[in-house]
């Protein structure tokens, strides 16, 4: 199945879910068609994976409007799913918008609920976490060892993880941006690494141009991708747009995770990207988490999206 850069409908995206052709094995489970999405051989491989980790995103603690008056509750439920996973994930990556309004009480709640899972975590901020003092309270709390701009990298289970910040100093009329200092750091961070080492990049706003009319893209993302292209397996995980989307360009797989708080409309499908109001019964299908499996020798990482409705 070929993937074109233009925007497929939501249904079409889901039909592509079983695709394993050119890059990544992407599996959708729960609240969505899942027959034959994952063969028994693939399932066995996943169970034996070297490293399993989880992406959780856009918890927006403090949000209390339709369609979800209890964003804390749905976040807690999904954290419960993570805590109950077998095998136990090595850690979770939170891809931003932990809070809704950068309030200490919101971060307190999130921090406490994450701590209760007993699972290691790595976080990056979304623009909602940057509303006070250019995000300093967020970084002090959640990424104290990061570079001064908030970005960082680490190695685990053979994978190199790079956490990038594209929500700082947003400019009028613009999109997400990394900035010259961070790009220079990224080039240096990747420079001496073997091209065979799998790379996982997290950003909040999509690194690729999803829908510039709504600011869903990163203006200097192409420069970051230029540094990443020589690697055999690159997985870019982002949040921000509160819906599942996937795209593959060569060896780079882009994956946009669900929110744990509220869904947003498909690009251009509504007058604005504001929270999508859905029937209460449908909400849980549109919130979720993603689990990522790495099997050594199988370059593409397997990503399993799971909705709260599953």
């Amino acid at each position: 199945m070929s993937h074109k850069p233009e925007f497929p409908s939501r249904r079409r995206v889901l039909r592509c879910a079983a695709w394993t052709g050119a890059g990544v094995l992407w599996v959708v489970a729960g609240g969505m068609p899942r027959s034959a999405l994952i063969g028994s051989a693939a399932a066995a491989e996943m169970a034996a994976s070297e490293l399993t980790f989880v992406q959780i995103s856009d918890s927006h603690i403090g949000f209390n409007k339709p369609a979800n008056p209890d964003a804390t509750g749905t976040f807690k439920e999904l954290l419960g799913r993570i805590a109950a996973m077998n095998p136990r994930p090595a850690f979770m990556l939170h891809t931003g918008d932990v809070s809704h309004l950068s309030r200490d009480a919101e971060w307190d709640t999130a921090q406490q609920l994450i701590a209760e899972t007993g699972i290691e975590k790595h976080l990056i901020p979304g623009e909602h976490d940057m509303l006070v003092d250019n995000g300093r309270p967020f970084f002090a709390r959640f990424a104290p060892k990061a570079q001064s701009g908030g970005w960082y990298s680490f190695d685990q289970g053979g994978i190199h993880f790079v956490a990038l910040i594209n929500v700082a100093n947003l400019q009028p009329g613009g999109e997400g941006a990394l900035g010259a200092a961070q790009l220079e750091w990224l080039e240096d961070d990747l420079k001496n690494r073997s091209a065979s080492q799998p790379i996982v990049v997290t950003t909040h706003i999509p690194l690729w141009q999803v829908y510039p009319q709504w600011g869903w893209g990163t203006s200097d993302g192409a420069q970051a991708l230029a540094y990443l292209r020589r690697f055999g397996s690159v997985t870019v995980l982002n949040g921000h747009i509160h819906q599942l989307l996937q795209k593959v360009e060569g060896t780079v797989a882009f994956h946009t995770g669900l929110s744990t708080a509220f869904p947003q409309p498909a690009p251009g499908a509504a007058p604005s990207p504001g929270p999508m109001k859905v029937e209460p019964g449908r909400l849980r299908e549109l919130l979720g988490i993603s689990t990522v499996h790495y099997v050594k020798g199988r370059e593409p990482l397997a990503i399993v999206d799971q909705s709260l409705g599953a």
């Binding site: 623009e127 947003l170 009028p172 600011g215 990207p273």
Partner: peptide, 12 residues
Amino acid sequence: YHYFCSIHPMMT
């Protein structure tokens, strides 16, 4: 006076 929304910078 030009202004924008720093959360959604496309709003000017």
